[in-house]
């Protein structure tokens, strides 16, 4: 029973992340947040099912995910800073320079 609840919560989390990305018109940072949410929702699954299968692999994976997510957001934010210097805005609808 608990198993299905856990999967449900992680699915809910992923769905909110998706919706967040689609509805959010403007902000790149919010999009980054949603992506991080997907990472974490996967994390929930791993942690619970590692306990469920009685071996530690899941938790190791969770740790890995957190590390990688951190690196990811670091690079993403760095790039957004650079973009901000050019576009002076974080609004994704302004990112339409490439045409054709």
């Amino acid at each position: 029973m608990l198993r299905s609840i856990i999967i449900l919560t992680s699915m809910m989390l992923v769905l909110t992340a998706f919706v967040g990305m689609i509805i959010n018109r403007r902000n790149l940072i919010v999009m980054l947040l949603c992506v991080e949410m997907i990472f974490l929702s996967a994390n929930i699954n791993f942690v619970y099912f590692s306990r469920f299968h009685q071996h530690v692999h899941g938790q190791v994976m969770a740790l890995m995910i957190i590390v990688v997510a951190a690196a990811e957001s670091a690079v993403a934010l760095a790039l957004m800073v650079l973009m901000y210097r050019q576009y002076h805005t974080v609004d994704s609808s302004k990112l339409v320079n490439i045409r054709g």
Binding site: F18, M21, I22, R25, L28, M31, S93, V96, I98
Partner: peptide, 17 residues
Amino acid sequence: FSRVQTSYLNRYFAIMS
């Protein structure tokens, strides 16, 4: 068709989802 790809980021995500 090519105009469908308007290089709006959130439209990308909409299509992908």
